Simulated assay, not measured.
Amino acid sequence: MSVTVIADIVGSRSLPDRAAAQRTLDQIIAEVDEDGPRAIQRLTPTVGDEQQALYATTDSALRAILLLQLALPDGVQCRFGVGVGETGEVPAASGAIPEGPGWWAARRAIDEVRALQQRTLPAARTRVVVDAGESSSTHEAAKFANAYALVRDQLIAGMSERARRLTYGRCRGRTQRELAASEDITQSAVSQTLAHSGAAALVVTFIDLAGESE
């Protein structure tokens, strides 16, 4: 079993500079893969505005996605479909093509995120779908993961870009004093921003999800 991730850029066609957005995304993906949970295959562009990745566990995927959401600037947002299931490859002249239930589940997850956004949850960005062939316990765990993801997405949506940067720093173990110096603000300002944005909850869940996954 593998955990697949498909990411796409929200509103990519309306971005004033699509190429610049992709460069920003590529840089952040590299930083997150270096700083956070290592991917089996880091997010890599495929076609259009999509990226695909492989992780060892759902927890690792969710932790990496959290760091990506926090690191992205205001002008660039992504949706994330997480699929749990078997994966494989189909040989092709241009190289192996990812294939299998895990990828199909990630595709369904992306579709579900879009549907949620268009209905009553515009802040939704992350969804987990498990292939029907996986165990009942895996399906049950996905229910909790989706509940967590929806609340997390809503919390991130209410954050300023600075609050997201500070939360990213705290997830990576940086002190408030270090963050204050990097932002050229007081430590008190850092503390207030973190407290008012709900950052502590994200940091605690980021740590809790580490478990045995890394």
Rank of each mutant, 00 (worst) to 15 (best):
R152N: 06
M159Q: 03
Q154V: 10
V151D: 11
N146M: 07
R172D: 02
K143Q: 14
R164A: 04
R162V: 04
K143W: 09
L155F: 04
L150E: 11
T175W: 10
G158M: 09
Y168V: 03
Q176R: 14
S160L: 07
A180S: 05
D153L: 01
G169Q: 08
S160N: 04
R174E: 06
A163E: 12
N146Y: 07
K143R: 15
R174N: 06
F144P: 00
Y148W: 15
R162N: 01
R152C: 06
A147D: 05
E161H: 08
G158H: 07
C171S: 04
A147N: 05
A147G: 11
R172K: 13
A145M: 10
A147V: 13
L155E: 03
M159I: 08
A147T: 12
G158C: 04
R152P: 06
R170S: 09
A157K: 02
R165S: 06
D153C: 05
G173V: 11
L150Q: 15
A180N: 02
M159H: 09
L179N: 03
E178R: 10
D153K: 08
R165T: 01
A163R: 00
F144D: 13
G158S: 05
I156N: 07
E178P: 01
L179C: 08
T167S: 06
R162D: 12
T175Q: 06
V151E: 11
R162G: 02
A145P: 10
A145Q: 14
A163F: 00
N146C: 12
A149S: 15
A157Y: 10
E161R: 12
R172G: 09
T175C: 01
Q154P: 00
A157P: 07
L150W: 11
A145F: 15
G169S: 14
C171E: 04
R164C: 12
